[in-house]
C-alpha cells in the first residue's frame, strides 16, 4: 500500500477540480455534437420546422429565421450559442415562447420522479431475485432467469400497453388518466423498471456466484454465519461492484425509456419533451435536453465512484 504524503483534504479538492473540469469538457462536447448533428439535417431549418404542409408565406419564414438567428452562418450561430451557454443561458425555444431552462425545468421533475421510482423498484427486485437464486439450481431459478430474458427482450412500448391493458383497462386498479398521486406512477415506473431488473439481476447473480466461490465465503460459513447471512452481508457487497460499471447504461436506458413510457402513458417529462421538440425541430430545446442528459451522466458517474469508495476498500488507496 502506498503511503500518503499530502494532506487528504488537498487531494480531495484536486480530485473534485479534475472532475469539474471533466464535466465541463463533457458538456461542451455534448453541446457541440448536438449542435452540428442537428445542423446536418438537410434543408432549410425554417422549412423543416414548419413541415411540408404549410402555407406560411416567405415574409413569415424570413421573420422566423431572423428572430432565431437562423439567417446567420452556421459557425457564427455556434459561437453565439456557446457564448450564451457559458453565461448559463440555453436560449429560447423556437415555438413555445419560453426559455429552454424553464421548459426543461418543468419537465425535469416528473421524469426524475419516474426514473427514481423505476430505479428503486429495479434495484430491490433485482437484489431479491439474485439473492434467492444465486448458486442454486431448480425450478425457481429456471423460471426467474427465463423471465429476466423476456423482460429484457420485450419492447418497452409494448410492455407498457400490456400492463395498461391488464391493470388499468381490464382490472381497474391503476389509472392512466389520474393526474399525480402514487397510483398513477406505478405502471409507468414498472414499465421502465422491468427491462432494467432483467439486466441487473443477471449481473448481480453472476457477481454473487463468483463471490460465493471465493475462500472468504467458506471462512465466513466456518465462523458460524448462516448461508443467508453470508449472501446478504458479504457476497452481495462484492457482487454490487460490477453493477457500478452499468451506471452509464442505466442512465441511458432510463432517459431513452422515458421517451417511450411518457408517450404511452401521456405523462409530462423530458422524454415527451424530447419527442415533441424532435418532431417540431425545436433545436434549442433539443440541445438543452442533450445537455441535461450529459450532466445527468456526469453526476451519476460521480455518485457511482463515491459508492465504489464506500463498498470497496481496495479503491480507497
Amino acid at each position: 500500500m502506498k503511503i500518503n504524503t499530502r494532506p487528504a483534504r488537498h487531494r480531495a479538492l484536486r480530485a473534485v477540480a479534475a472532475r469539474a473540469a471533466g464535466a465541463v469538457a463533457v458538456l461542451w462536447g455534448a453541446a457541440t455534437l448536438a449542435f452540428f448533428a442537428l445542423a446536418l439535417i438537410p434543408g432549410d431549418p425554417v422549412t423543416i420546422m414548419l413541415g411540408p404542409f404549410t402555407t406560411a408565406p416567405q415574409s413569415i419564414r424570413d421573420q422566423i429565421a431572423a428572430d432565431n438567428g437562423l439567417d446567420k452562418p452556421l459557425f457564427e450561430r455556434y459561437l453565439a450559442y456557446l457564448g450564451r451557454l457559458a453565461q448559463g443561458d440555453m436560449g429560447e425555444s423556437y415555438q413555445l415562447q419560453k426559455s429552454v431552462a424553464a421548459v426543461i425545468g418543468e419537465a425535469l421533475g416528473p421524469t426524475v420522479e419516474l426514473a427514481l421510482a423505476a430505479v428503486v423498484i429495479a434495484i430491490v427486485l433485482a437484489i431479491v431475485s439474485a439473492v434467492l437464486t444465486a448458486g442454486r439450481e431448480g425450478r425457481l431459478r429456471g423460471f426467474v432467469t427465463s423471465w429476466e430474458l423476456v423482460a429484457v427482450s420485450l419492447p418497452p412500448h409494448w410492455l407498457g400497453i400490456l400492463l395498461l391493458t391488464a391493470f388499468s383497462f381490464q382490472l381497474p386498479i391503476f389509472p392512466v388518466v389520474g393526474v399525480g398521486g402514487p397510483s398513477a406512477l406505478v405502471l409507468p415506473a414498472l414499465t421502465l423498471a422491468l427491462p432494467i431488473i432483467g439486466v441487473l439481476a443477471q449481473v448481480l447473480r453472476e457477481g454473487l456466484e463468483a463471490a460465493l466461490a471465493q475462500p472468504f465465503a467458506v471462512t465466513a460459513r466456518a465462523r458460524g454465519l448462516s448461508r443467508r447471512q453470508v449472501r446478504v452481508r458479504h457476497a452481495l457487497r462484492h457482487a454490487a461492484v460490477p453493477l457500478a460499471t452499468l451506471s452509464g447504461w442505466l442512465a441511458g436506458t432510463l432517459l431513452g425509456g422515458a421517451v417511450i413510457v411518457e408517450a404511452v402513458f401521456g405523462r409530462p417529462g423530458l422524454g415527451a419533451l424530447a419527442l415533441q421538440s424532435a418532431t417540431n425541430k425545436d433545436m434549442p430545446v433539443l440541445i438543452g435536453i442533450v445537455l441535461v442528459s450529459a450532466l445527468t451522466f456526469v453526476v451519476i458517474s460521480a455518485l457511482i465512484d463515491a459508492f465504489q469508495l464506500l463498498v470497496d476498500p481496495r479503491v480507497r488507496t
Binding site: 439535417i41 438537410p42 434543408g43 422549412t47 423543416i48
Partner: peptide, 8 residues
Amino acid sequence: DDIGTYIA
C-alpha cells in the same frame, strides 16, 4: 428519407 430531403 428525413423531412428535409422529402420537402426538397
